[in-house]
Nucleic acid binder design. Structure first.
Lengths: 336, 336
DNA sequence: ATGAAAGCGCTAACAA
DNA sequence: TTGTTAGCGCTTTCAT
């Protein structure tokens, strides 16, 4: 059996309160401090966080629900967040709900049962019913990447409209007029914003938006490959495609390979996320890059703040982080 | 405040033992069962797993330590494992130690303090000092991907020797005689096994191994890019390269792009992992594919078994899973 | 089948 | 500063 505070008390001849005080950074007489440290060393004592949690009603654990762990955007966010939380003694329990609203509900219930102190989520269910329930618990909730109507809580987002319009304007500047887009699911917040940005860029340039140039994928590699192939067959005049997440970008590249088409000669392409992949492509891809690690760190920072005694009653914060357009060689200049 | 068993007892007029018995699947008189269920419903009661954990000395939580979450091999393993564990009510706390032995120790201590019931680890420290300590706790420990000398515990590995020799023999069959390899760090178990396989294939074919054809990377994209460039400058006769993990494979592709070299015309390449990336390359890459999700599921299965009352005293299991060589178009046939 | 009571390891209020 | 004590919410004897 692992040693307990009682053992330390017995060995040192001190009371429990003294040990507890020492462990929690309180004042202890020098000679006792030495004794306690010696005993802890000898008995390999480690605080039992379960007992502490029962007493303090805090598990020092944060729950995270994401649509897909096996997705660079998500895994990078978690890397940044987990790191920041752990350095403050918080554990992170990550649940992957496979973009399934049912599994999302199960994951949240699971985390509630585990008594996490707070929840960070990249929501799948756009209704947010599960979240409304969670909010009643008065525990901090942070939304990442997607907002939900009627849910007022801290959110960390990127500026999707600007990101998309910057990408599309870049294509327009290079002379493209028939620009396809492979967007995400119609009902996803982020996806809508990116489509808005696509339309806004067209408006700014005075180019009408053509419905046939708009495809909705589901953020998978497969849908990216299918998407670009459909776009091409439907739109003989299309000279460029903007793809709105990493997996679909990779899919689009696969799709072109399958048709033996080359970028930028046959078609220009602007992708999304994952600089490494962009550089690995030949020629390298022009992409919109999101500050994923920063998103995770920001979420952790806000969570830590809410969890501390001070930052509880402040208004919900909406953080918008910027993206960068990183130029590769996948866009042909056809202006003349 | 959330409702407790006491509340259920008060509302139903029953004793705590009865409620507990009900919650744990014991026998309860029909009429009481109904009453209890009603009360649970009304009060939104949820078991407090923290209190239960304190009492039962089990948190129903498994700790996982990996060298890099933002690495497809690791994230896919975790996807498979987390899924299997959660469906049995176990939470997974993942710690990313950034391939740093110091951080690995911190992560393990952290998980011990969190009183995880078991530990699954892709070890970074090849000495395994942290693990020796953990083993004393009598809690189940499972090693993934890498074994450690002197640590006897369950392990889930792939057959690295066969994987590597199959890849190299494939190259030899296509007529290659000067085959470079970008291996992992010298001290990593998996990396040694793959190098063994590389050598074994040469022996089988009666081809001497040349030291200059062997590079050691550190499993990062950057080291793959540098690695292939060094190999090329050092070995003018080299016609093919075998790259031994996904990140370095992507790096090698980047490195070739930077030199404006094409595969398979200028050099043939066999990579590792991530079928999607392999298909996204142009032409598609021939790769060794590991059953990552299966590795995670197997680890979860063994952990669940060890954690159950039955499977505790069995001998450590060493599971070896097979890999597949998936042919793309990145290997030129130069036999004549 | 059910109830009473002890105790898991800790913190915090109170006393000394 | 330190000791004593009560309980956090649960499971588990031991009675009944």
């Amino acid at each position: 059996m692992a040693a307990t505070m009682k053992d330390i008390a017995r060995v040192t001849g001190l009371g429990l309160a003294t040990i507890s005080s020492y462990l929690n950074g309180g004042n202890v007489r020098e000679q006792n401090r030495v004794k306690i440290e010696q005993a802890i060393e000898d008995l390999h004592y480690e605080v039992n966080e379960v007992a502490r949690g029962l007493r303090t009603q805090a598990t020092r654990t944060v729950g995270v629900v994401i649509p897909e762990l096996n997705n660079v955007f998500c895994s990078q966010i978690i890397t940044g967040m987990e790191d920041a939380l752990r350095s403050e003694g918080y554990a992170t329990i990550v649940c992957d709900c496979r973009s399934d609203t049912g599994l999302e509900k199960e994951a949240i219930d699971f985390l509630v049962r585990k008594r996490v102190d707070g929840l960070v989520i990249v929501p799948t269910d756009i209704q947010g019913r599960n979240l409304r329930e969670f909010l009643k618990s008065e525990k901090p909730l942070i939304l990442i990447d997607r907002r939900i109507q009627g849910i007022h809580c801290d959110s960390v987002l990127v500026d999707n409209r600007s990101a998309a319009s910057e990408a599309v304007l870049h294509l327009i500047k290079k002379g493209h007029r028939n620009i396809g887009i492979i967007g995400g699911p119609r009902d996803v917040f982020t996806s809508q914003e990116r489509l808005d940005g696509y339309a806004a860029a067209h408006r700014m340039a005075g180019i009408p938006v053509q419905e046939s140039l708009i495809m909705h994928g589901d953020y998978t590699i497969r849908s990216g490959a299918r998407g670009i192939q459909k776009l091409i067959s439907r739109n003989p005049h299309m000279t460029a495609v903007f793809v709105t997440n990493y997996e679909m970008t990779m899919g689009a590249v696969i799709g072109l390979n399958e048709l033996s088409l080359k970028f930028p000669q046959d078609i220009s392409i602007v992708g999304f996320d994952n600089l490494e992949f962009a550089r690995a492509c030949s020629p390298s891809l022009t992409i919109v890059s999101q500050p994923t690690v920063e998103i995770g760190e920001k979420a952790a920072e806000i969570m830590l703040c809410r969890l501390s005694s001070s930052g509880q009653d402040e208004e919900p914060k909406i953080i918008r982080l910027g993206t960068k357009l990183i130029e590769g060689r996948s866009v042909a200049d056809i202006s003349d």
